[in-house]
Write a protein that binds this DNA or RNA. Structure first.
Lengths: 173, 173
DNA sequence: CTGATGTTTCAATAAATTTTGAACTGAGGC
DNA sequence: GCCTCAGTTCAAAATTTATTGAAACATCAG
């Protein structure tokens, strides 16, 4: 958006200037963006992941920002998200100041982490409420059909909560 | 937002005036809204489904609108969404003008339908692109690590596409 | 056919989410 | 300690998505 004369590269910091995404990279990014969209993950996050995914080695902050052409803030927040969900790893070379990033080995595991973090809290928080709703319906002598529905929902919820910890040990095990 | 004097119910159409949601209904609605949010389903759609889910019999258009206090447009669109994803059924009593709605018997089946409709198109559309990205990487002699990642992604995609039709027969079987 | 009821459509509006960028923080290096 | 670099924060702006409501449409009774 403000390509600063590009050629004045010479002095001081040499303003790296990165290539925009290549067609094959765009294609992959589109795929990840679309899949991420289903889970409400922002475009910029998916793009960062896609870039790391097609790149041969780990990339540092400035490369990510430069190649994707997005703001520092977005890169920072995006990497935070990916870190929090254990979808990227930083490779800190000895004696190097900058961190360099690469995708976690297993995309499958990453997805599980992501899902857990979205679904589990909802299930946990809902637990007492759902029980109350069911009890309520029973007290009020609601239709058997409704009671049945609410019971099933409660059973599901409990079962999901029991199963969840088996999927992947909670962070710190 | 503009309660039309409420008490002037008398004449003509008797302006039904529905109760707002009860606490136990709100609780359930919150749960559905939250779960729906994970998949990017709008609040109003989740609310409609929740209301039908706790209600004893099928509800008609005006009841849904009245009890949720949302616009006609939202109800119409919401029901369309739920219909399209086979999450609600209409029970048309003989000789009755209005349609009345209730949730599909199996919530599980409904969720599968919903997921299919979101994920499948993305997988299908991505298929050729992903293959191209992989071929591209091979031609360019990319790092083995990258090739490996892209291959795995392709295998996943194919497998998912093969498995999908088994989950539930496509609408019209 | 006509009028009334019930539903859908869709442009305008409102609400929610994402992105930006400038100010800030922190960690070394010197 | 002071300065530079690397990265974070967060309020404002941009963008995207959902909701509204008036007008169009459809269906049926008479």
């Amino acid at each position: 958006m403000k390509p600063p004369s590009e050629k004045s590269a010479g002095r001081r910091k040499s303003r790296p200037s990165f290539e925009p995404l290549q067609p094959h990279e765009i294609e992959l990014a589109d795929f990840f963006v679309r899949m991420a969209g289903i889970l409400g993950v922002p475009r910029s996050v998916a793009e960062i992941y896609a870039l790391l995914y097609v790149s041969s080695g780990p990339l540092d902050f400035d490369h990510i920002q430069g190649r994707l052409g997005i703001s520092k803030g977005s890169v920072s927040q995006g990497l935070k998200f990916l870190r929090d969900h254990e979808m990227v790893l930083s490779v800190k070379e000895k004696g190097a100041r900058r961190e360099r990033w690469q995708p976690t080995p297993s995309l499958a595991a990453s997805l599980v982490t992501l899902l857990r973090s979205q679904v589990l809290p909802a299930l946990e928080q809902a637990q007492p409420g759902l029980q109350r709703v069911l009890a309520d319906a029973q007290e009020r002598g609601a239709q058997p059909e409704v009671i049945e529905r609410l019971s099933r929902l409660n059973r599901w919820n409990s079962r999901a909560l029991e199963l969840a910890p088996l999927l992947l040990p909670p962070p710190g095990a």
